[in-house]
Structure formats: C-alpha cells, structure tokens
Computed example of a mutant assay.
Amino acid sequence: MKNRSEQLILDLGKKIVFGEVTTGEILPKVEDLCEEYNVSRTVVREAYKGLSTLGLVRSNQRSGTVVLPRTEWQWWNLEVMTWLLEDPNNKDFLLHLTEVRMGLEPTAAALAASRATEQDRMNMEEAFQKLEQSIGDEKAWAKADYDFHESIIKASHNDLLIGTIRIMRKALTVSREKTLPLTNDNQEFPYDSPTRAALEKHRMIYEAIMSRDEAMAKKTMTELILRVRTILQKIFNNYS
C-alpha cells in the first residue's frame, strides 16, 4: 500500500506523463497541494522531491516547481515507463521502443552467435522448442517468444544489453499484446503471432546463431523487429 507521498507522486506523475500538465507549467504551491490533498507540507515536499528524481520537474525558490521537457525524463525508470504504457494517447512510445530494440537485439544476436557457450546453446534450443510447442496458443507463444529472445540476449554476455532488455520487459510484453490480436486475422503481418510462418522466421534466427553466423543472425533479427514495427504502425493508423 502506497503512503501519502507515494500516492501524490503517482497522481502528479500521471498528470505530467499524460499531458494534463504540460512542459513549462508551474505546479501548485506546497500550501495549495496540502489543502487539496489534505496532507502535510512534508508529504508534498517529499512528492516534489520524488518527481524531481524522475526528471519530471525542477524546483527552485523563485519560480516554483516547473514541469521539465520529455527529454529530461528518466525514461528507463519503471514508474515512468508504467505511466507511459498506461497512457492511451502515447502511441509513439511503443514505436520508439521497437526502434530501440532494432538498435540492441540484432547486435545481441550477432554477439550470441560468436560468444554463446554450450550451456547458452542448450538454453536457446530449449526456448526454441517451447516456441514450436506454442503454435496456435497466444498466451503460451507470448511467454515462449519472450524467453527465446531473452536466451539470445543472455548469450551475448554483454551486461549492459542484458540489463537494458530486462528493464524493457514490461513494455515488450505490452507491445506483444498489441501486435498479436491484429496478426491473427491478417496474413500480411504473420511474424509476431503464433503461426508456422512466425516460427520459421524465428527458426532462421535460431539456426544462424547455432551455426555461429554473426551476419545472418544480425540480418534476420533486424528483419523480425522491422516487421513488428510495421505491425504497430498499421495498428496505430487504424485506430488513430
């Protein structure tokens, strides 16, 4: 259960992320928030301090507490990322996330092809087998798909890549939830759904890594993520 300052951070943080309070806008004075939320000055000050740590605001005695531009936000903070995912109007976030994946996962696949240990290769084989077994089952596929990609990331033996992808886990899950419903009924976009066509795309990545073909591993992973981006773009065009 959240304490009062945490709840105030949640309320104000969402208003900022959702665009209800815009960049450059001054947040209410401490005294005003005390009255509005029926809390003490200490609670409000702690909340403002928390928002500042997240890069959402900056406080000073002369101008008050001002909302900072999005470029200043701590995007990889779990709270900020969760609020971004809850905002139905923030369509760009999942597209930007997919673009980050394009910068990370093909490189990780190439590194996995060259660095994977025998244990890593066994883990990837097991993950791919689960992917095969999940054909036709959206829920099982989503988990197996994540595990397959994670086995590749781990095999890269790059701690920064591994850590970044783990932070992205919740957002990646939401991304898959958005792409799966559309792809089930649209054969033009088959590669992020539990179909044989999707499996074959993953098999190309798997076989490239297992044969230690770095260039092919990078190429096939790039193609897969580009397809996911196309799916997201189609979804957002349909529902904009």
Rank of each mutant, 00 (worst) to 15 (best):
K154G: 03
L131A: 04
W141E: 01
Q129L: 14
A140V: 05
I152A: 08
E138N: 15
S156I: 04
Y146F: 14
L161S: 02
A140I: 03
S151R: 00
S134D: 12
I162W: 04
Q133D: 14
N158K: 05
E138T: 15
W141H: 07
Y146Q: 09
D137L: 07
S134F: 09
A127H: 03
S151H: 08
I153M: 10
A144R: 03
E125G: 14
K154L: 13
L161W: 03
D147V: 03
A127I: 01
Y146T: 04
F148L: 05
I153H: 02
D145E: 04
K154C: 06
L160G: 08
K139E: 14
E126L: 07
Q129K: 08
L160P: 12
A155M: 07
A155C: 13
L161F: 13
S151W: 05
E150P: 07
I162D: 02
K139V: 13
I135R: 06
D159I: 15
Q129D: 07
E125P: 08
N123Y: 03
H149W: 04
D137M: 07
K130W: 04
L160A: 14
A142R: 09
E138G: 15
K143C: 12
S156Y: 08
I135G: 03
E138F: 14
Q133E: 14
A127Y: 12
D145F: 03
K139P: 09
H149K: 09
S151G: 08
H149D: 06
A155L: 12
E126H: 12
A155K: 05
A142N: 07
M124T: 06
A144F: 02
Q129A: 09
G136D: 05
L131G: 01
I135K: 00
E150R: 13
A140Y: 00
M124G: 12
N123M: 00
A144Y: 06
A140N: 09
F148Y: 11
M124K: 11
S134C: 15
K154N: 08
A142T: 03
N123W: 05
A127E: 06
L131W: 01
S156L: 07
A127C: 09
E132G: 09
A155H: 10
F128C: 07
L160Y: 15
A140T: 02
S134R: 06
L161V: 12
H149V: 05
E125F: 05
I162K: 00
A155E: 06
